[in-house]
């Protein structure tokens, strides 16, 4: 029985082998290597070539791309608005120039560009991001919220998001390869187009899922760090009417080596606040103060991760987070509770 089974297995395997590996050639032909050599030589002689434009390929179908973009993101863009969001002013100007060269004095094109969408989308995105961050990180001081917002709206991040949702090839713009600025503007235009097609709440989901969610693997302290941790910690403890920060050396090793490590912990009224390590006591103290602050602000490694399932209400009244100069647990209760 088992021999039968092995036979059957072998037969299946052989079938597979013949179908996959058999190509009808015994080896690599003698002409392949010299031909490749010549091709490479000619390529090197030509020098670096500009990146080919995907839209110049024969199989390019703009309408299909637009349709696919809409479906891929499971969004419900109005197709006309979507096309407008992808059309930049520079493209329209280029088209007009082409007509003038042909001899048309007053070229009249029925193409709408995204100039006003960009302006609208930029404001809306900024508003959504700011409100979302305040809601998701209620303990983070206002300075941190603004820095995080600047980071999320920086050209590099938005351009990356824009590329990753697949705008690069569909953008109608004069510049090629598409510049970062164009990518960013396209993203903002898309946000505005979505707001016009659907509503603001739905747009906030779009911004949340594609832009704000990039924060998930980031360390917040690497984007924003309080500039004077000692003074800040002391001021906060003072406002909370607790004892001043007490730094204690908890461990040290290899003191006489270049790999010396000191561990310093901060306490206030015998209560542990934070711990830090460094190559000198001063560095370790600094880190301990920073650690205490990040525990207070709820942005430490072990704190609850930033929620990415909140809904922001853009129409509601603006409530800012506490600034560093007013931050204390008592004030926080008033703000978050009220």
């Amino acid at each position: 029985m088992s021999s039968l089974r092995t036979c059957a297995r072998a037969a299946i395997r052989i079938q597979k082998l013949t179908s996959v590996i058999y190509t009808g050639e015994r080896g690599i032909k003698r002409w392949v290597a010299p031909t490749l050599r010549v091709i490479n030589k000619r390529k090197a002689k030509l020098g670096p070539q500009p990146e080919p434009r995907r839209s110049n390929f024969l199989d390019w179908n703009y309408n299909a791309e637009i349709f696919a973009f809409n479906k891929r993101l499971s969004e419900n863009f109005d197709v006309e608005l979507l096309q407008q969001a992808f059309t930049h002013r520079s493209y329209v100007a280029q088209e007009e120039q082409k007509q003038r060269e042909v001899g048309i004095e007053n070229p009249e094109l029925s193409i709408k560009d995204n100039t006003d969408l960009i302006v609208e989308g930029k404001c809306l995105t900024s508003e959504i991001v700011e409100r979302y961050l305040r809601q998701a990180l209620p303990r983070l001081p206002e300075e941190g919220i603004l820095k995080l917002k600047d980071y999320l709206l920086s050209e590099e991040i938005v351009a990356k998001v824009s590329v990753q949702i697949g705008t690069k090839d569909i953008i109608l713009s004069e510049d090629h390869p598409v510049r970062q600025e164009t990518l960013v503007n396209t993203f903002f235009a898309l946000v505005a187009a979505l707001a016009r097609s659907n509503d603001v709440v739905h747009t906030s989901f779009f911004v949340r899922d594609f832009l704000i969610a990039t924060l998930s693997d980031k360390e917040i302290l690497s984007i924003w760090t309080p500039s004077h941790p000692f003074q800040t910690l002391d001021a906060i403890l003072n406002r909370e009417k607790r004892g001043s920060a007490d730094f204690r050396l908890t461990a040290q090793t290899g003191v006489n080596t270049i790999l010396a490590a000191y561990q310093v912990a901060v306490y206030s009224d015998q209560q542990f606040l934070g711990i830090g390590t460094g190559e000198t006591v001063q560095v370790a103290k600094n880190i301990a103060a920073l650690d205490a602050l990040q525990r207070m602000f709820g942005i430490a490694d072990f704190s609850r991760p930033i929620p990415f399932n909140l809904t922001v209400d853009v129409s509601s009244q603006r409530t800012e987070n506490l600034p560093l100069t007013k931050w204390c647990t008592e004030n926080l209760k008033h703000t978050v509770g009220g």
């Binding site: 360390e219 302290l221 690497s222 760090t225 090793t253 290899g254 080596t257 790999l259 490590a261 561990q263 830090g276 390590t277 460094g278 190559e279 560095v283 370790a284 600094n286 880190i287 920073l290 650690d291 990040q294």
Partner: peptide
């Protein structure tokens, strides 16, 4: 800075 300190502590001899 905190991550760097964590790295330092992890690899301290």
């Amino acid at each position: 800075a905190v991550k760097r300190a964590q790295q330092w502590a992890t690899f301290a001899r």
